[in-house]
Every structure is written in structure tokens, then in C-alpha cells.
């Protein structure tokens, strides 16, 4: 195991995880809003935010799927050492991490069961940038409308149609985080 794997975790787990969770809680509660998180210094290509979200939410009982170049030895080692989550294929994942194009097609991930829609996967998307521009979001958590620089539109529209089934998304860029739960309706032009 490399030196990278041993470093980059929380130095004060209870407090750091609590603050990071609050940011994610706000992000999921208010789709489109952008929050900052800190605490993790994961190996590339994981963002600070993606690493922090994983440290906050994943553990030995929450299987993680690594997609594309996120599926590299340093990231595997880091997750194994700090989180202990089983690394699995897309089908069995509770969390998946990767760039947007590497996460496609979304049909591989579990959208929940009709009687247990909570059993759906959460996808943590690695982005270069995250801004309040682009797609128009409406739905629970949004006062009138919000905008977020989503990587595309159609996939999220297809996802929302399945409600109450569907995937939930957490977007990360650097130390910034935003979310798009399945309950959000997405319209308008994509950017990026």
C-alpha cells in the first residue's frame, strides 16, 4: 500500500464528517445549490469533494463502484484503507464515482425497488467545474427554479420519469458539491 493511500483521510472524523454531511444534506435538500466541503485529500482523479463525500457516507456496508479512470490502484487503495467499502460492479453499487461519460450508461445502476425505492444507487460525478448556469431545475427543495451546469439533460429527464425509482446524483468539482435527486425536473440547454 502506497503512502498516498495512508494519507488524506479525516483528521477529526466526527466533526469533519458532521460538517460535510450538513453540506451534502443542504445540497440534496436544495437541488442546484452549490456548497463547499473539506477534509479529504484523495488521490487523483477524485476531487476533494468526492473524497469527502465518500468518507462521510460510505463504509464497509456500502459497496462502491469506481468508473473509468477513477478505477485506479491509488484510489482503490485509498478507499480500502480509509473507508473499507467493498469495490463492486455497477449493478451492486450503493455509490458510484467517476466522470460523467464513464458512468454511462446509467441503466447499469440499481434504481431502487418499487417497494423499497430507497435502495437506489447514488452517483458521485467528477466534474471540472460546477456553476449555477445551464439546466433549469424545478421540484421539491427549489423555491421557484434553480440552474446547474449539468453534463447533459436527457439522461436526467429519463431518470426523473421513473420516480419514485431512480438514481440520485452528487456533482463534485474541486471542493464544491451540488446534488440532483431523482425528484428534480430538468429542462433547458445543457452546458459543458
Amino acid at each position: 500500500m502506497t503512502g498516498i493511500a495512508l494519507g488524506g483521510g479525516f483528521s477529526h472524523p466526527p466533526e469533519q464528517a458532521a460538517r460535510a454531511f450538513r453540506a451534502v444534506l443542504e445540497a440534496v435538500s436544495r437541488p442546484g445549490t452549490i456548497w463547499t466541503v473539506e477534509g479529504a485529500v484523495p488521490p487523483a482523479p477524485l476531487t476533494v469533494a468526492a473524497g469527502t463525500v465518500l468518507l462521510t457516507l460510505a463504509d464497509g456496508t456500502a459497496p462502491v463502484h469506481l468508473a473509468g479512470d477513477a478505477d485506479c490502484q491509488p484510489v482503490r487503495d485509498w478507499i480500502t484503507f480509509h473507508i473499507g467499502a467493498p469495490l463492486v460492479g455497477a449493478e451492486g453499487a450503493m455509490f458510484a464515482v467517476g466522470r460523467w461519460q464513464d458512468l454511462l450508461p446509467l441503466g447499469r445502476f440499481h434504481p431502487g425497488d418499487p417497494d423499497y425505492p430507497d435502495r437506489a444507487a447514488t452517483l458521485i460525478v467528477l466534474m471540472n467545474d460546477l456553476t449555477n448556469a445551464g439546466a433549469r431545475l424545478t421540484g421539491p427543495g427549489i423555491k421557484d427554479a434553480a440552474r446547474l451546469s449539468l453534463p447533459e439533460i436527457a439522461a436526467f429527464q429519463r431518470n426523473a420519469v421513473q420516480f419514485p425509482l431512480g438514481l440520485d446524483f452528487i456533482f463534485t468539482a474541486g471542493d464544491r458539491v451540488a446534488a440532483l435527486p431523482r425528484s428534480t425536473k430538468v429542462e433547458g440547454a445543457a452546458c459543458m
Binding site: 466526527p14 458532521a18 444534506l25 457516507l57 450503493m94 420516480f163 419514485p164 431512480g166 440520485d168
Partner: peptide, 24 residues
């Protein structure tokens, strides 16, 4: 631990809260 519960229990509850928000 901070706020009594151990971290693993808190993660489990936090995951449930987020899914609850996703399916109001």
C-alpha cells in the same frame, strides 16, 4: 463519540436521510 452515536451508525442514518429527501 461526538453526538453519542458512533460514526458507522451516523453514516447509516445519514444515508437514510438523503434517500428520504430524494423520495419525499
Amino acid at each position: 463519540n461526538f453526538a453519542y452515536l458512533d460514526e458507522q451508525t451516523k453514516r447509516m442514518i445519514r444515508r437514510a436521510i438523503l434517500k428520504g429527501l430524494a423520495v419525499p
